[in-house]
Write a protein that binds this DNA or RNA. Sequence first.
DNA 1: TATGAATGAGTTTTCATTCAT
DNA 2: CATGAATGAAAACTCATTCAT
Lengths: 192, 192, 192, 192
Amino acid sequence: MGEQGKRSQIMEAAVRLFAEEGFDATSMQDIAREAGVAKGTMYLYFPSKDELIAQVYRHCYRMDVEACRAGLAQEKTALDKLCRRLDNIMDFALSHPLESRIERLYGSRPGSMRRPGDCLEELYEDIEAVVREGIDRGELKNLPSELLSQIYYGIATAMYLSFQADPERWADPQVRSQCRKVIRDSLSADRD
Amino acid sequence: MGEQGKRSQIMEAAVRLFAEEGFDATSMQDIAREAGVAKGTMYLYFPSKDELIAQVYRHCYRMDVEACRAGLAQEKTALDKLCRRLDNIMDFALSHPLESRIERLYGSRPGSMRRPGDCLEELYEDIEAVVREGIDRGELKNLPSELLSQIYYGIATAMYLSFQADPERWADPQVRSQCRKVIRDSLSADRD
Amino acid sequence: MGEQGKRSQIMEAAVRLFAEEGFDATSMQDIAREAGVAKGTMYLYFPSKDELIAQVYRHCYRMDVEACRAGLAQEKTALDKLCRRLDNIMDFALSHPLESRIERLYGSRPGSMRRPGDCLEELYEDIEAVVREGIDRGELKNLPSELLSQIYYGIATAMYLSFQADPERWADPQVRSQCRKVIRDSLSADRD
Amino acid sequence: MGEQGKRSQIMEAAVRLFAEEGFDATSMQDIAREAGVAKGTMYLYFPSKDELIAQVYRHCYRMDVEACRAGLAQEKTALDKLCRRLDNIMDFALSHPLESRIERLYGSRPGSMRRPGDCLEELYEDIEAVVREGIDRGELKNLPSELLSQIYYGIATAMYLSFQADPERWADPQVRSQCRKVIRDSLSADRD
DNA sequence: TATGAATGAGTTTTCATTCAT
DNA sequence: CATGAATGAAAACTCATTCAT
């Protein structure tokens, strides 16, 4: 596991340490030690610590995006898509706590907004497209799609934080359906 | 504003810089320069950078707690209280973006969970008490109070992030009532 | 005790702290606190830390010189004078351990040789005069007086260090006479 | 001399500066400059200034111990051993004035007694064993062995300080024999 | 490609000294 | 006289980055 190259070793070590200690409290030396390579080797694969951080983030982010898109095509309504995606989000977050932590740490990092193409955009755009469609069809509340997407993510994050302490509970089908209900209730338009 | 003492000057400079650059990327020297005092002066008022960070955080946190509690007593139902509090949260967050940022930065800081009595506890406990009561009365969804509180905060945060770009929009009464409706829909129990 | 002036308070506090912690590890602040005066007050009585150290040393040194000269006039032979002086040295050292420590600390301080008139000179000159006379009279070994004086002091210091742990033992008259014998044996010329 | 490694360069520079300026008055920067290396390099070889001091001391101490033990086995009586050792002590001290100074500085350092295994123990124990044996055999004065050892060291130190100014004089065989006589006279028991 | 010794800019912190009150 | 807030030079130590091997 991890021996298809020095690059992966370094990335995995970095994910582990960054998630546990934070970006600033982790030195290049720490990562090199954890990865089992020399300090100089780090710079053969990553030109700088900043770039390593960015690539670690992008790595985690890509895994998340991939996982979150699974099976979305099968769902018809916007709410079904959003609920399906909630499952994906939770499954990923609970099975990849380190990568999730990295995403959150990076998102709240000052200065990260400055790097274009860095942050969450793809995830948000996916969601916003679905949300926009749902609003247009009258399925979702008539609020700015950007706001509604944020709310959706806010709820998903809340659930992740809550289930994180005891990931087993999320496996319970009844719990999942209750959580889907929360999503539906918050986002769906009044019917009648 | 800010000349009633070196201590305040330093705190205000620290709030500004920490919020903009993060805790680690801001040096004591930077803060001293921004505050217009000498490096050594910092240590007359704060025994270490760690302690400065902690006190800056507590300062922001206290302002937030105070602001969020305003007028809660007048509300009767749990939902009314939560909606009133949403107003307070948004008003504070939009009028004190730096302090809000500090709160979020500190909360996601690795290692900050270790200092007991530090983090968000008071705010969460306030909310959880209301939520628990609402659940008991059948007013709110029958979910773990801790989860429901997280969801409430998740939605509030989402709204803050969304309105942050254009704080004026939150002043619109129609927008506010729509946002309250989201809170109500997500948290309230099914009636029948 | 110590209230005949700020100056004395400061000196006494300095003696205590310098003896216990050393010159470098004791800050002006520490001394001010111990003396119960403000930091600035220190500089009304001593122009600098270096000067305070020098004056503290001279104070201890003067006490020592005074104590060591007591009763010397009554003794006739060089050996009697040296033995009497040994008593004085030991009595002073054991009853003024702080002052003795200061003297030793200052003596081994690098850079202290540079200040003229600082170090031990008076004590040494006293002794050397006696020693020289003793040599001339054939009473003491025919060695350079400077060497013999050093040896005398070396033995006295050794005794001080040895009795320091249990000062009571020095009160025993038999012990004292044994110690005098050591002095006599080492310094006196062969008789025949 | 000194180019068999950075570590030695640093140690030698440290010995020089510590001996001349003292431990506290010598900064890591000073040593780095004297050794011709960068500040950071110091910390590749010594984890802290305290540790550097301790290792410098141990280095000097070991050299001393080694030198002082030479040829002791050949001597039979306690007095012969102590005289032979006096030669060793003087030879080492006069040929290694820096190392000797370091030993004395470290010994009189406040706080150095706290590090166990640090100070002079080995040297003292060596001597005390010889002294104890000499007392038991009636060869030396019947005084506490600890006191007699101190006196021996006191005399040796006195001689070192005295010859330091003009080391050539110690080479004179007549001088040496006179000095040995002082040792014999001070320590040996009365014969009759 | 891989190493790790070497660097030096930058960080936190201390403290002797000054000076307005 | 007395104070103690303010200063800034200097110290110990860290760490991203380079480069000779």
